[in-house]
Design a protein around this nucleic acid. Structure first.
Ligand SMILES: [Mn+2]
Ligand SMILES: [Mn+2]
Ligand SMILES: [Zn+2]
Ligand SMILES: [Zn+2]
Lengths: 161, 161
DNA sequence: TGTCATCTTGATAACGATTATCACTATCAA
DNA sequence: TTGATAGTGATAATCGTTATCAAGATGACA
């Protein structure tokens, strides 16, 4: 058992293995490589970056397989897909050390992503929703602006429009 | 002058005309029809729905022109583009009667969209951002769940997955 | 009212991220 | 080892949107 009471995983690779077993799926070199690369990268990983990383080890893995594997990781709760309005999906690991109930600050100048979590805000949102008869099960909160570095011009590069 | 002190417009069609003049652009039957249809529909209009509506009057307007015109309306602050994670862009009017600083509750079952505005929440978000050195200029807050109708099964149809 | 530079339009090709398809290969329980 | 089943890679397809470009419309000015 690699899943603790909270439903989160101390060892994501083992948890993936367990999930694969349970579902009658099969292990594969590619899935292992992709999951390994993903958890080694950390952060908010765009799929194409993950593809590049995986191909350093095995140049033949196809993009299709990377997409399929990330979808699998999302399905078993080890990864969370994020869309920060760049038209591309990013995935971030969802481990017990790292709650996926957080929100994001995104610098529109350098692309930096900062995470934050505010129970105050979440609580108020739930309350507003309830007042309108809604029962919330997914939130999407993204705050776009400029980080301190970019505002003072010390920026690492004006990458994002 | 059809723009009041707040920068919002009592007559969006006239405001569009003004903008077109000022920018050295030209008036056109299509732009007028599209803008008219858009403001007549109200709400959060998907582009394809707008295309359909416009074509009831003039079957030859091309999708390209509708996209171009909506981009124009956005440029002059008369419309705001929204992406509610369905892969398609919706536009909503931005008039003085209707602030575009609001957020959305979206029913994942019937697709209903309810607007809300909470100064409490916005204030807390700005504060959190500031604490991280960010200066926010755009927010994206969407709360997904089920509306009261859908929860009690009286639903108007399980349209959205 | 006509001219003409400039803008706009419609049809359609292109785009980019993601998914579907399908022939072939790998896995694994028996 | 086998055979049923799942996974893979290459690539076509999808879908919303944008780019392209030849043809048409607009409007300041003569
Ligand atoms: Mn995150
Ligand atoms: Mn709205
Ligand atoms: Zn920055
Ligand atoms: Zn509903």
């Amino acid at each position: 058992m690699v899943t603790d009471k909270g439903g989160r995983h101390r060892n994501p690779l083992a948890a993936l293995g367990e999930f694969i077993q349970k579902k009658g799926l099969k292990h594969s070199r590619q899935r292992d490589a992709i999951a390994r690369a993903f958890f080694a990268m950390g952060g908010h990983v765009p799929v194409d970056a993950l593809v590049a990383r995986v191909r350093e080890q095995d140049p033949r893995v196809s993009v299709a397989t990377v997409y399929r594997t990330m979808k699998l990781l999302a399905e078993c709760g080890l990864a969370v897909p994020r869309r920060f309005g760049e038209g591309q999906t990013r995935y971030e690991p969802s481990t017990r050390r790292h709650s996926d109930a957080h929100d994001h600050l995104i610098c529109t100048s350098c692309g930096e992503i900062v995470e934050f979590e505010s129970d105050r805000i979440s609580e108020l949102q739930l309350r507003v929703a309830r007042r309108h008869g809604f029962e919330i099960d997914r939130r999407r909160v993204e705050l776009y602006g400029r980080c301190s570095d970019c505002r003072r011009g010390t920026s690492k590069g004006e990458s994002i429009a």
